[in-house]
């Protein structure tokens, strides 16, 4: 993976340089955005509902025992905003959308469709990479907002219906409201934007670097997903430190 970092950075630079082409590629950005949302919304809903629920289930009884029920909403809310929603959604999107990007571009490379574009003087970065990068950079933060909200609901449901926790819906929401600041949500959105750029760049790079036949495409898809997840987790630590520093 690390031997390709230079190429990945170069692709990212070229994509940034192509940004003035955004208006021309607007229809493709919308198509990609639809693909991302349509493919992932239900999965994101189920995933975040259960993450919120499990968080409440893990922390709730212990905190209730110690009379700290009023902090459960805050803990669930903060964990979701700052960490779990951005990371889990990024992992989901890397598997669901990053793999599709690598497979589609990879198969276009193998079957000479990229060569055909070049002979028509159509830049594959403008035509393929830019719309995908823009769509994922917009789509993932939106999905994270959705996941945070659904996750909060998941936590509330467990708090209300679990006898060991026994926190009312109003109590949970009050704790959530007291403990969560807009900056916490912004923190998560910054992370998710950075993760989206990583997934888009790594997946498109793997697609463009595909060689061989169907086996090569399979290899590219695997590399795209694995490398994206590894980079997401590394970047998560760096961003957490950086954002904590900025919070002070």
């Amino acid at each position: 993976m690390f031997q390709n970092i230079g190429e990945i950075a170069l692709l990212f630079g070229r994509t940034l340089k192509a940004l003035p082409q955004t208006r021309r590629q607007f229809r493709k950005v919308l198509e990609q955005l639809f693909e991302i949302g349509n493919a992932s919304l239900l999965m994101a809903c189920v995933l975040s509902l259960f993450i919120g629920g499990v968080l409440a289930l893990q922390t709730g009884p212990v905190m209730s025992e110690r009379g700290l029920q009023s902090f459960i909403g805050q803990i669930v809310g903060l964990s979701l905003c700052r960490e779990l929603a951005p990371v889990m959604m990024a992992v989901l999107i890397a598997g669901r959308v990053g793999s599709a990007m690598a497979a589609e571009i990879g198969s276009m490379k193998v079957y000479q469709e990229l060569d055909a574009l070049q002979t028509m003087n159509i830049n594959p970065i403008h035509y393929l990479v830019l719309p995908r990068m823009l769509a994922i950079s917009l789509g993932l933060p939106l999905l994270v907002i959705f996941a945070i909200l659904v996750g909060w609901v998941g936590g509330a449901l467990v708090c209300v219906f679990n006898a060991q926790i026994a926190v009312s819906f109003d109590g949970y929401m009050k704790s959530l409201g007291n403990g969560i600041d807009v900056l916490d949500v912004v923190n998560g959105l910054i992370k998710s934007f950075a993760f989206a750029v990583v997934i888009g760049t790594v997946s498109c790079h793997q697609g463009l670097a595909t060689i061989g036949g169907p086996r090569g495409i399979g290899r590219s898809v695997t590399k795209a997903v694995v490398n994206s997840i590894v980079l997401i987790l590394l970047l998560d630590y760096v961003l957490t430190r950086l954002l904590m520093h900025l919070d002070k």
Binding site: E104, M108, Q112, E113, D115, A116, L117, T119, M120, N121
Partner: peptide, 23 residues
């Protein structure tokens, strides 16, 4: 300049009309 590839190299995600009019 234009090239006709051995495999045709048509973009599989586009229909015939979109392929021909792509340029």
């Amino acid at each position: 300049m234009a090239m006709v590839f051995q495999s045709g190299a048509l973009l599989n995600s586009l229909n015939v009309g979109e392929n021909v009019g792509l340029y």
